[in-house]
């Protein structure tokens, strides 16, 4: 390491799905404790890219991943690495909130429990802590032990965030995490991200350019499975280097 806070380093990452080349030779460094937004038109491989960061592709036999991703100088695609540890470290917030079929409390307690936290007192402390962090505590404290299904979509997404944070990750991956939410819920989640970047490295996939402008410290622009341009947000928006980037920012295509 050169002393900077570079946390994720990706080297010649290639992903094939069903024989189709989705990600082509990705080389990238993502800075730590900042919000990185991955942008690009739909179908450019953003989500595929995000999923390779916590090895969710392992669950699909049709996907073939090659290359290396170094997280804190450790290649997560190394044979000796336990995929469970990787996923614990990289919390994923999916596009659609998906509460597990259990109570609000059990949802948040799910991660701590599977990672063998047994003390009841510890668990309820953890649950309360992360529900507060996600700004959901006051809304659900009276119905902790009823099903999570009746919550509004926005509440569900914050519940999923609390659930993800409760496994104590160091990174947060968001896959269009606000795209199915109303504007007010979106704002709440975005504010949370800004608070959370003090302690976490956050990588968000989004196709909403304005959201990237609002949140990003660092931008990665992808097109047809390749990285066209990546850099600090100011520079990216004010002084783009590639013609394709200029066109995209200008809204010529989306």
């Amino acid at each position: 390491m050169t002393g900077t806070n570079h946390k994720i380093r990706i080297e010649s990452l290639n992903v094939n799905i069903d024989g189709q080349h989705i990600l082509k030779n990705i080389d990238l460094t993502i800075p730590g404790r900042e919000i990185t937004c991955v942008i690009g038109p739909s179908g450019c491989g953003k989500s595929t890219f995000l999923k390779s960061l916590n090895r969710m592709h392992d669950e699909n036999p049709d996907v073939n991943v090659s290359g290396s991703i170094f997280v804190d100088n450790q290649d997560i695609y190394d044979r000796n690495i336990n995929v469970i540890d990787i996923r614990k470290k990289m919390g994923l917030l999916a596009q659609h909130p998906c509460p597990l079929p259990m109570s609000v409390f059990d949802n948040v307690a799910y991660g701590p429990r599977i990672h063998s936290l047994d003390s009841k007192k510890e668990i309820s402390k953890t649950v309360e802590h992360y529900l507060r962090l996600a700004g959901l505590w006051d809304e659900v404290k009276d119905k902790l032990h009823s099903s999570a299904a009746p919550l509004s979509l926005g509440q569900q997404q914050r519940l999923c965030l609390a659930r993800g944070l409760a496994t104590e990750p160091e990174y947060i991956l968001g896959d269009e995490a606000t795209s199915s939410l109303d504007p007010i819920s979106t704002k709440k989640i975005e504010q949370l991200f800004v608070t959370l970047k003090e302690e976490y490295t956050i990588i968000l996939v989004t196709h909403i350019l304005r959201q990237a402008r609002r949140l990003a410290d660092y931008i990665v622009f992808m097109y047809l499975g390749e990285i066209i341009e990546a850099g600090p947000a100011d520079e990216f928006f004010n002084n783009p280097k590639q013609q394709l980037t200029k066109d995209y920012i200008a809204g010529s295509f989306s």
Binding site: N54, M56, E59, I84, D85, I86, R87, K88, G91, L92, A94, C98, L100, Y110, G111, I114, H115, C160, R163, G164, T167
Partner: peptide
């Protein structure tokens, strides 16, 4: 997937 991404086996 939600369960897997939380690190469940």
């Amino acid at each position: 997937d939600a369960s897997f991404s939380l690190g469940a086996t």
